[in-house]
Structure formats: structure tokens, C-alpha cells
Design a protein around this nucleic acid. Structure first.
Lengths: 130, 130
DNA sequence: CCTTGCCTTGACGCTGACGACAAGGTTTAG
DNA sequence: CTAAACCTTGTCGTCAGCGTCAAGGCAAGG
């Protein structure tokens, strides 16, 4: 499989695949003319990378999962390093959820006050009695 | 008040203040020697900007709030444009919270399965009976 | 032979909110 | 006189994950 086909099957671009390779995440063979040649295992690797990036991981976070797959495991999740990253990411997401909830609360309060202020300084017709 | 003093009182840097000015958010006077001169109103504007950025707004989102303050309002929140942005941001935060909750759920599931897998393929001593 | 459609490496662009420096003017204190 | 401590404009660097040319090689069909 050449890079174009892999890109299509993985739902990404050739640029992205070369980028992953430059960062040491994918290791294609080379044909005689210098073309990159990928096997099915690399397709799985790329799909794993994509899935993790979609969830908000960075390329560095993805490394252990790729190594885990490459080590012959059926899932990239089951190795100790992957589990560590999963735990860390879960904690990060929890933190972020907390902060985001606080922000949401503040925005809600701000919005409520702003609308109350408008009702007060510029009462609408038929505001309380139609 | 010169730029250094404003930076300190606003808890930011001179670079940041010049950046805001370049983007049309702050309008200092100029003294004879070309130095930027700020009044107290500008301090409030800068604090409003900082507060909104801290909550995750972009500079563009901040514009209506600055204009609102500049229009003489006690709060930057009370103008229609500001309210629109507040509503939009609240919706964005809600969306993000939903997506983040889904991600959290997925990570949790992934982690649970990974750990279950380890228990299964590599049972610990004293796992179920001490 | 020439076009079409793959592929190669290399290198700059983008987004956002600044940080960090360069090279220089101004003002005040000693 | 000079050093310190302000200020000015201008420009490049940062982080991440690519997008988007540029310039060219390789293979196959008409």
C-alpha cells in the first residue's frame, strides 16, 4: 500500500502521514523507487493515532500506544505506559471539566446580571403584564 | 500613568499592552516625548480584557465589552453586543462540556478495559484472596 | 512523445497571545 | 559625565498539527 491509499483508508492526508513519520510514529518500508510502502499493521497504527488525537491527545502522548501495538498487543491501551498516560489524561480532563464548569457558572451569572440590568434601566413594554 | 505602571497595576506586561493597542483595544494618549499615557478608565478596560481572556475569550470577542465600557457603562456586560457574545460563549462552553464529558467517559472505559485486560492476562498475586 | 497521476524532499504559512531581543531616545540621580 | 531605569518601534520566536505550494522523479496509457 502506498501513501495515498493509506491516507484514504485512514481518513487523513499524505502530509499528515509524512508528518507522523518525521516524528517517529510510523515506519514504512521503501520500494526500489523510493516510495513509502505500508502494510496493514501500519494502518492500525495510524488509526490508533488518529483516534487518540481526536480525543485531545498530543503526539507525544500517543507514543506509548503505538509502541504497545507494535509490541504485538491487540490494543494499544494495555501496556503500562499507555495506562499511565490514560490515567494522566483522565485527570487532566477532570481538571478541565471542573474549570470549565466554573467558567460556565461565571458566564451564566454575568449574563443573568446583564439581562437584569437591561430590564431595570430599559423596561420593555408588556414586560410583566400582557 | 505610563505603560510600565499600567502593566504592573493590571498584572500584565508592557508587551501585552502594546499588543492590545495594536489591535485597537486600548487608546492611550501620548506625551510630548512620545510616551504612552493612560488614565484610570484605561486601567478598567485592560482589567476587563484580562478577565475575559482568562475565561477563554479571544481578543475579537472582547471588543464589544471594551466598547460598552467606553460608552460610559459601569459594566462591559450590559450592552446588546456583549450579551450576544456572552450567549454565544455560554453555548460554546456547554458544547465543549458535553464533548469533554463524552471524552472523559471514553477514557474511563478505555482505562477500565485496559486494567481488566491486565488482570486477565497477568493476574496479580493476592488479587482476590489475601 | 506527451500527458496524467502517482510519488519524493523542502520549505513557508497559519492560528493567538504574547515573550524576547535589538537598537535607540529620555530623564533623573549621583 | 555617566549609569540606571524608564520609554520607543520593529522583528523574530513560540507551540501543534498540519495545509499548501514548489520543483522534480517515476510509471503507464494513448
Amino acid at each position: 500500500m502506498l501513501i495515498g491509499e493509506l491516507a484514504e483508508r485512514a481518513g487523513t492526508s499524505t502530509r499528515t502521514l509524512r508528518y507522523y513519520e518525521a516524528h517517529g510514529l510510523v515506519h514504512p518500508q521503501r520500494s526500489a523507487n523510493g516510495y513509502r510502502v505500508y502494510d496493514e499493521a501500519e494502518l492500525r497504527v495510524v488509526r490508533e493515532i488518529r483516534a487518540l488525537l481526536d480525543v485531545g491527545f498530543g503526539l507525544e502522548d500517543v507514543r506509548p500506544f503505538v509502541a504497545c501495538l507494535r509490541a504485538g498487543n491487540s490494543s494499544g491501551d494495555v501496556c503500562p505506559d499507555s495506562v499511565l498516560v490514560l490515567r494522566r489524561k483522565l485527570a487532566e480532563v477532570d481538571d478541565y471539566l471542573d474549570r470549565l464548569a466554573a467558567v460556565r457558572q461565571q458566564l451564566h451569572t454575568q449574563l443573568t446580571h446583564a439581562i437584569a440590568h437591561r430590564e431595570e434601566t430599559c423596561p420593555r413594554k408588556r414586560a410583566s403584564a400582557p
